[in-house]
Amino acid sequence: MKRNWTSITGSRLLDLLTVCVVFAFLFPYLFMVSSAFKSRLETFAYPPVFLQFTPTLEHFDNIFNNMHILFYMKNSTIIAVCSTLLTILIAIPATYAFARFRFRNKEGIAYGFLFLQMVPGISIVFALFFIARALDLFDTHIFLIVVYLLWNVPYAIWMMRGFVEGIPVELEESAMVDGASRFKAFRVITLPLMAGGVAATAILIFIGVWNEFSLAFFLTSTNARTMPTTIAFFMTHSGIKWGPMFATATIGTLPVVVFALIVRRYFISALTFGAVKG
């Protein structure tokens, strides 16, 4: 009887600990969002102001009307959407080949894609800088859209391959026995079944491009500058403009957080290149 009681208390304590731990991970984000609504004085107050402040929208007003944040959001959206769609378009046929055909060196080629995916952006960004200058494509949307394919296409292939392999091949085979071509069997049977996986992959690629910093920072200047690289505008000679920065961070991370929560079910396979099913 007594033992039972201690184990219940123990498990309650563990529950409490879990809540505290999870809150600790959430807290810096909450503090960031709340700081977007604080005045300059409240941001710098020590001890920090947690709840006792009067919310203000001045920073949002500032970034929309004076810092033209919508222009950079538009750039980010164009680049992320185009690069994502192009990636998916190129990656779907390749994914299907890796998942459904047997050919020589299949795994070797698949790993070849993976190794290219490992190349750090910062290590080739200056070479890309010279290439962009030579091709007269510096500070253009199209250059970033194409360059991101180097990382996104291998990622999409590895991600989606698992989804296609999870669909029984017999479904396609029976359609082909009924006289459908391989393409028709793919279009009518497999494509609708992998749509969820494709959508999740697309969203995760979108998040990656939306957040990408090092390439966007060094390959654009004014015309194609994206959201994450606007941080440079907040670091001025007279110090960092924290209020507008927090407001921008709040706006910029909001769509990503919402998207991530939508595809939560796929998040584990997304993080592991499809190696682990969540």
């Binding site: 991970f25 959430l26 957040n211 960092i240 927090f246 990503v256």
Partner: peptide, 30 residues
């Protein structure tokens, strides 16, 4: 709900995380 919350730090914009880190780690910071 807990696993949903844990997704957030991973998907935040790294450049913004860096700038926030700079403020949180300042002498009068969080």
């Amino acid at each position: 709900l807990f696993t949903a919350v844990l997704v957030i730090p991973i998907v935040l914009m790294p450049s913004m995380v860096g700038l926030i880190g700079r403020l949180y780690f300042s002498y009068d910071g969080l």
